[in-house]
Design a protein around this nucleic acid. Structure first.
Lengths: 143, 143
DNA sequence: ATAGTTCCTTGCTATTTGCAAGTAAAAGAA
DNA sequence: TTCTTTTACTTGCAAATAGCAAGGAACTAT
């Protein structure tokens, strides 16, 4: 139950108080692009997050309602993390970050996706938004 | 001369290694929206940055070529900080952050600008890009 | 000459990070 | 059933970073 203090009402400051941390958006990246959903999978990302920091950030993301945590139906000792509708609204922002990063560091990233993103940003946002909406716990429960 | 270490070639990780800090984008915000350009002006922002942190971040922004520093022509003890062309490329990202923040925290921000931004994002980006390009040191020198 | 202004630097304490190790609880293997 | 492994953490500790208050250097205004 770790939450966040806001320093001002400025929209940018408000956003950065939540997401202006190197790890927050990397976790969300893994959920969106790599469809990761467990602690173990998040740990395996190339950037090497420390276990305590991962636990801390997951807790904040949950408190701030960007993600939801549920016991895995397949494996009771494992949890499944999924984006909420609020979390899904970050997709346009994440795509913009991706675009900027790929322009100034052309080495990394999925070439095909980047090409598509440069051509049709709105389309890619819509595509990933739809994909993530399908994975939401709410809609899974409705099936 | 303080620079940055990159943890991976992922475009998102690359971007966050530079900008994934609560202060970096607030300084850029002040340059873009409030047209601030001096140490003193940056210090006066509502969020209350510490002097050593401001000096540190300005140094990184300069090393990474997002901004340029020059002695003020009006006052030799004062420096003028201005965006470079690279810094200007962050405007779309900053607008996206503004949009997200204003959706989830409707209290703050310039209402008129936000309204325009929601209607015509591309237009607002173009407008601010042009405005900042005019303030660049290179073009000022050309006058 | 004196008093401010501006852009920092320094010193100190408190918080946060990163690393290594440990724990608890369920799952799979013998 | 017992032993080992897996998963998701927590804990402890050293090192880095942040925040706060004060100080200094170089100009400027009076």
């Amino acid at each position: 139950m770790k939450s966040i203090q806001h320093r001002s009402d400025c929209p940018i400051s408000y956003t950065l108080d939540i997401l202006g941390d190197k790890w927050m958006l990397l976790i969300l990246r893994d959920m969106i692009f790599a469809e990761k959903e467990s602690y173990k999978e998040f740990m395996q990302s190339g950037e090497g997050i420390a276990t305590n920091v991962l636990a801390d950030r997951l807790s904040i993301l949950e408190t701030e309602k960007f993600i939801t945590k549920k016991v895995s139906p397949a494996n009771k000792k494992s949890f499944v993390y999924r984006l909420t509708d609020k979390g899904i609204t970050l997709i346009p922002l994440i795509m913009e970050i991706t675009l900027w990063g790929s322009a100034f560091n052309p080495k990394g990233g999925n070439k095909e996706l980047l090409k598509k993103l440069k051509k049709d940003k709105e389309g890619v946002v819509a595509e990933f938004t739809a994909k993530m909406k399908e994975r939401t716990f709410k809609s899974v429960a409705r099936v």
